[in-house]
Amino acid sequence: MANITFSHPEYKDKTVYAVAGSHTDTILKIAKENKIPIAFNCQDGECGTCLVKVTHLSDGKEKGGPLTDKEITVLKGLGKITQEQVDEMAVTDMDHPWRLACQMIVRDEDLRVEYGVE
Results as ranks from 00 to 15, higher is better:
D13V: 11
Y11I: 13
S22Y: 06
A20I: 11
K29R: 12
I30D: 05
K14A: 14
K29F: 05
E10R: 10
I36V: 13
I27W: 08
K32F: 06
Y17C: 12
K29N: 03
P9H: 01
I27D: 09
A18T: 14
I27C: 02
I36K: 04
K35R: 05
I38C: 07
V16F: 03
S22H: 08
A18V: 15
K12I: 15
V19P: 05
Y11H: 10
K32E: 15
V16P: 04
V19R: 05
I30C: 02
D13N: 13
T26Q: 08
P37L: 01
A31W: 00
I36R: 04
I30A: 00
E10S: 14
Y17F: 14
G21E: 10
E10D: 15
N41F: 01
H23Q: 07
G21H: 01
N34V: 14
K14L: 15
I36E: 10
I38H: 11
D13A: 12
I27Q: 06
I30N: 02
Y17M: 13
T15P: 13
F40Q: 13
A18Q: 09
A18Y: 06
V16A: 05
E33D: 10
I30E: 08
G45V: 12
I36H: 04
S22D: 12
T24A: 04
N41S: 15
C42N: 11
N41C: 09
E10V: 14
A20T: 11
Y11S: 10
G21Y: 01
K12C: 14
N34M: 08
Q43C: 06
A39F: 02
N34W: 03
I38P: 06
I38A: 06
N34I: 15
A31R: 01
C42I: 11
D44L: 01
I30G: 01
K29A: 10
